[in-house]
């Protein structure tokens, strides 16, 4: 991964001309090149990068001069906040609607839910984002369209969820980012419900005289959550990695927008560091999914208690 990105980025263009002023002479340019270490052979650059990376140093930003890692982690909070809110929305809206559509497949309202979820799937995120801004910010003037609002620190976490102003800034981009995932969760939940309700163990649970709430809420949900958690785990990674579009539209100061800017300015260390972080995130998320999996499904637990 690092090889691919590192060498690939070298092909795209020379960052030096983005950095020096147009009327700089050759001497200035040479100095900048030497300062950035770009005068060395590319292989040597890569070895230096790997050496640094192993010690936790992914290089300094060409533009800002500060460490790329620090730059990204400063922006990461905003992105994580956005991604978590979107994930929360996806679960809080998707699972109940999916359950409803699965339990009563013939009702009109279920058909409405399923049709809307197709829309959620197929409408491009950027267009929906623009429409949201147009409706809620421009026409109705209810919600701000750009930036992150006030933040507050609670339990050591600095986030805009804790202030009203911050929340009002968060709603639109989070809803925009969540849209696709909500549709996905609805469809997954519905499919699981439809299939699960046919299972013998559901019929047996009903034959025990349990209430519908318990049959659906415990017997069914615990079984269908297994595939949902798997998919959501994978999707959460992409939620972070591809919040780029939403962050760009809503001018959200997250790392997705930082990435776009860095690519435009050919700020190689930042781009490389960003991709490294995303890779690491994916690994961590997959690990978490496996842990949750073993909580939900006793069949995949490695050690059995009491034996």
């Amino acid at each position: 991964m690092s090889v691919l990105v590192f060498f690939g980025l070298n092909i795209i263009g020379d960052p030096v001309y983005m950095l020096v002023s147009p009327d700089a002479d050759q001497e200035d340019i040479d100095r900048v090149i030497r300062n950035l270490g770009l005068d060395r052979p590319i292989l040597e650059q890569y070895v230096l990068f790997v050496k640094g990376a192993l010690q936790g140093d992914l290089g300094n930003s060409f533009i800002f001069g500060e460490s790329a890692l620090g730059l990204i982690s400063r922006h990461m909070g905003a992105t994580l906040e956005l991604a978590f809110t979107a994930l929360f929305l996806a679960i809080a809206i998707g699972i109940p609607l999916g359950l409803y559509a699965g339990l009563y497949p013939n009702r009109m309202s279920s058909r409405v839910i399923m049709t809307s979820s197709i829309l959620g799937f197929s409408l491009p995120t950027f267009w929906v984002g623009l429409m949201m801004i147009l409706i809620f910010s421009v026409q109705l003037g209810w919600l701000p369209s750009t930036g992150r609002g006030d933040t507050a620190t609670f339990l050591g976490i600095t986030s805009s969820i804790f202030t009203l102003n911050g929340l009002s800034h968060l709603i639109l981009p989070a809803a925009n980012l969540a849209l696709l995932k909500v549709s996905l969760v609805i469809r997954l939940t519905r499919a699981g419900t439809r299939e699960g309700m046919q299972q013998d163990y559901i019929k047996f649970a009903r034959a025990k005289g349990l209430s519908t709430t318990r049959v659906v809420g415990v017997h069914l949900l615990k079984n269908i959550l297994i595939p949902i958690v798997t998919v959501l785990g994978l999707e959460f990674g992409s939620l972070i990695a591809f919040s780029v579009v939403t962050e760009t539209i809503f001018a959200w100061p997250g790392m997705g927008r930082l990435l776009i800017e860095s690519i435009l300015q050919l700020d190689r260390p930042v781009v490389v560091a960003y991709l490294m972080i995303i890779v690491a995130l994916f690994v961590v998320i997959n690990l978490l999914v496996d842990v949750v999996y073993s909580i939900l499904d006793p069949r995949v637990r490695l050690k059995e208690q009491g034996k």
Binding site: Q199, D200, Y201, K203, F204, A205, R206, A207, K208, G209, L210, S211, H219, K222, N223, I226, L296, D297, P298, R299
Partner: peptide, 22 residues
């Protein structure tokens, strides 16, 4: 529902499927 499992109970064919696996 008050009768089911209380006054009238049922046993199913496939024991591999009737108990909830999780």
């Amino acid at each position: 529902r008050a009768l089911r499992g209380n006054r009238i109970a049922m046993i199913f064919q496939d024991p591999m499927m009737t108990l909830n696996p999780v």
